[in-house]
């Protein structure tokens, strides 16, 4: 187990190092630099000023030198300042990360809580009316573009019924703020949940149908166990293995935000922050946010590997001779 953890840690470090260089390089390849963007919003900036600012922000050095400078500082724990926000990058990231975790964490959990039972129900009676009804709902969720669904929810619940705020975050603090914040979260969470229920339900359904066709399930039924006992005691753990893989891949997405939903609901999360950082050529901020998402995706996969051994004891970290 320890050997496995150490090996995964080493692999992850290499992946992160490669990713940091790739992200830095790709941003450097984009046309224009932050000073060009400044000139666009302030045409009075002269050529001399542009040269002065490029030197001030270290943009006149070759890309590899700049990357090396960033890497050596990062290894010392100095991740630099955000050029756009003039604040240490983590000071900018934490509030956005907190918001995103609230939004995506809730919708992620809600989607799983709804999708797993739906998938099981659909699998137990495949091609029944209930299965068709679930599939209809699921495909609608998959097919509807997130921005359209978000606007539809706003129109219904904010404009027509006027019962929920259309976007933003709460102004009040304290206990009143908690209630207000909850109200502001309902529509974006609902929008993301509906969009992600579909995929998870389909995976769960397919995996459960395959599991239910196995001999050990027939044996369990022959022993006189009820469907409920068969599913909870025998089928579910086996059927969850492929679902865990998909959920693990989604784990990084929890931290990288949902750009479209955040933009429409004016929700200040990681998706919008990453987008603004890339468009504003804010190297430090973009790098750290993207690396954070990468690291957490790697962590999600690592957690999935651990979960496999719990779900299927036949899987082991011990090396076996074949």
């Amino acid at each position: 187990m320890i050997q496995f953890v150490l090996s995964r840690l080493a692999q992850s470090t290499v992946v992160l190092l490669i990713m940091s260089f790739t992200i830095y390089g790709l941003m450097g390849l984009m046309p224009g630099d932050p000073i060009d963007l400044m000139i666009t919003s302030d045409p009075k900036i002269t050529t001399e000023d542009a040269a002065r600012l490029r030197e001030l922000y270290g943009l006149n050095a070759p890309l590899t030198d700049r990357y090396w400078h960033w890497l050596t500082n990062a290894l010392k724990g100095d991740f630099g300042f955000s050029r756009m926000f003039s604040r240490p990058v983590f000071d900018v990231i934490w509030p956005a990360l907190g918001n995103t975790l609230q939004l995506l964490g809730l919708s992620f959990l809600l989607a799983l809580v709804i999708a797993i039972p739906l998938g099981i129900i659909a699998a137990v009676k495949p091609y029944s009316k209930l299965d068709y009804a679930i599939n209809l709902f699921v495909f609608a969720g998959i097919s509807v573009p997130p921005f359209w669904l978000a606007l539809l929810l706003i129109t219904l619940f904010s404009v027509i019924f006027g019962i929920l705020p259309a976007g933003g975050t709460a102004e009040a603090a304290g206990v009143a703020g908690v209630w207000e914040s909850a109200k502001y979260l309902i529509l974006p969470v609902a929008s993301l949940t509906i969009a992600s229920i579909g995929g998870h339900t389909r995976y769960m359904r397919a995996s459960m149908i395959e599991t239910l066709g196995n001999d050990f399930i027939r044996t369990a039924r022959a022993k006189g166990l009820s469907w409920y006992q068969v599913i909870t005691g025998h089928a579910l753990r086996n059927a969850l293995i492929p679902v865990v893989t998909v959920v693990a891949l989604d784990f990084g997405y929890l931290f990288s935000g949902a750009l479209v939903t955040e933009t429409i609901f004016a929700y200040p999360g990681m998706g919008k922050l990453i987008f603004d950082a890339i468009m504003g050529n804010d190297y430090n901020l973009a790098l750290i946010t993207l690396l954070l998402a990468t690291a957490l995706t790697l962590f999600g996969n690592f957690a999935a590997d651990i979960a496999y051994t719990w779900l299927d004891p036949r899987l082991s970290f011990r090396k076996t001779r074949r």
Binding site: A150, I154, S158, V159, G162, A166, G167, G168, I264, A266
Partner: peptide, 14 residues
């Protein structure tokens, strides 16, 4: 940021 959402916010009283 989204102008359609901006309009919806106006109509909903946000």
């Amino acid at each position: 940021g989204n102008t359609a959402a901006l309009e919806a916010n106006l109509l909903s009283g946000g």
